[in-house]
Simulated scan of single mutants.
Amino acid sequence: MSIELIIILLAIGYIIFTIDKKKDDFPVPTILVLVGVGLAFIPFFDSARLTEHTIYHVFLPALLFVSAYQFPIKDFRKNASIILSLATIGIVLNVVILGYLISLISPLGLIEGALLAAILTPTDPVSVVSVIKKATGNEQIASIVDGESMLNDGTSIVLFTTLLSVATREKGFSFPSFLGEFLLVSIGGVLIGLILGYLVSRIVHYSHDRNYQIMLSIILAYGAFSIAEAVGVSGVLATVASGMMISFEYGRAEKEDHFRRSLDGFWEIAEGSLLAILFLVIGIELTDHLQISYWLYAAGIFALMVLVRFITTLAVSKVFEPLSWRYNTILTWAGLKGTMSVFLILTLYAKSASSIHSDWIVGVSFTVVLLSLTIQSLTMAPLSRGLLKK
């Protein structure tokens, strides 16, 4: 993308963010995607394209870091069992059940159905967390939604990669092998993130200029991601762990408040700018893949996706931390799809494997993502108010 195009996209994002004065019922990312769909019909924006590499290595590290850094550690401790179980066991159950159901109603086989389910499993609640807080005043449910989304990306990538290899016949599936790879990738990523986050929390005291402290946080966000990926573990979890470690270290003493204020100022601006560009271009990108022939399948899969998420969320919460059916309903509806699903779709699109229905999966996936972003985010506020009155 040219610099002129980036500036125009930022200007459009600025206008939309400015309209959202109360940050209440106005899900900005969803509006950005819908505006992007409109921009796709203007020839000037033809060069606004996303690749899986750009999402993964440019946008994700920063967005994950700011989410993790701003996530209150006390909330994670309080809800750790339900967050971790939803981000691991819940994800696997979702893929297995949804994949099977998809294979029953579509031209896909069982493995291809599971692959599509893996694409539609990671959640992206950036559109709804603030809406839940404003609509209900309930911090716990917002924290669970936010915490799950930070951690389930890593699980989803491992599942997707494994299923894609099986579907393209690059290797067979072995549960012990999958479990071993999952533990190695996950634990390795977390350890790298925690170590680097701790080191940076110590080094930052040698930088008395806040501009250099901010520079160090950028190095941490992208450095943790790159180092982890280079050694074959999860860059996603490394960045999340490093952000949470920084948040933990800065929260231990009041004298660290000036560090937090400096980082807050920068990362809030960076997050808004990245989200504006990303969701506008997602809207432009997915327009090329929307076909009438996919909509009936997409609507059915969207309905199954919501149903399966409700079942798995209810089952997991019953075991690890009982939640009321009202909480489970909101957790289900807040599991809308976004950045990570688009990354996985583009990864499959780039592979273009002839041995699977890749074009069909890509087209249906993009349509489901659009349905999820619009329907779920636009109805989140009234649903939250109705179930959990403030």
Rank of each mutant, 00 (worst) to 15 (best):
N138P: 05
A276C: 15
L199K: 08
A114W: 02
E229F: 02
G147W: 09
E268H: 08
L104W: 07
V369N: 06
T347S: 10
L86C: 03
K255N: 09
I16R: 09
I15R: 04
I157H: 02
W267K: 01
F71D: 03
R309M: 07
V362Q: 03
L323G: 01
A230H: 08
T367F: 11
I31R: 06
A353S: 15
I119R: 00
T239Q: 05
Y198R: 08
V368R: 06
D359G: 05
G235V: 05
T54G: 02
D288A: 10
A238Y: 01
L378F: 15
L9D: 05
S156V: 13
V236N: 06
L86A: 05
L331R: 11
V342Q: 01
L373K: 04
A40Y: 05
Y56I: 12
A353T: 04
G272E: 10
Y349V: 06
F65V: 07
F41N: 14
E4K: 13
E4V: 10
L388I: 15
Q70H: 14
I15K: 06
T161Q: 15
F343A: 14
E229A: 10
A11G: 08
I269N: 08
L336D: 06
R77F: 13
G338W: 01
F310H: 13
A353Y: 08
Y250D: 12
I157Y: 08
A114M: 15
L108I: 14
G13Q: 11
L191M: 15
L84Q: 01
K351A: 13
W267N: 00
D288S: 13
T287L: 14
E285H: 02
L50K: 05
L50I: 07
I89C: 00
V185M: 10
S226D: 10
L296C: 10
I144C: 14
L296Q: 11
L104I: 09
W325M: 14
A117V: 01
S149Y: 12
G147H: 04
L370T: 00
F71R: 07
F59T: 12
P43E: 04
T136F: 09
F160C: 10
L371Y: 14
S234H: 01
T123E: 10
A334D: 01
R77S: 15
L194R: 07
E256H: 14
Q140C: 02
L346Y: 13
L93H: 07
S201E: 01
L34S: 03
V33P: 03
P27Q: 00
L115F: 10
G113K: 00
W325Q: 09
S186L: 15
E321W: 09
K390A: 12
L383M: 11
R169V: 05
V362M: 08
I356N: 05
D257V: 13
L120T: 00
V129W: 07
A241E: 01
L93A: 15
W267A: 01
L108Q: 10
F76W: 11
A276Q: 12
I284F: 08
S262W: 07
E112Q: 15
T347I: 04
S273I: 12
F71I: 09
S273F: 08
S234N: 03
G386I: 10
S352C: 04
V28N: 11
R49C: 04
P322R: 14
H57Q: 11
W267H: 05
G113C: 00
N79H: 15
T379R: 02
G180C: 09
D153Y: 13
I157K: 05
S317Y: 02
T51P: 04
S354Y: 02
S201T: 14
M340C: 12
L331A: 12
L120V: 11
G283T: 01
K351L: 11
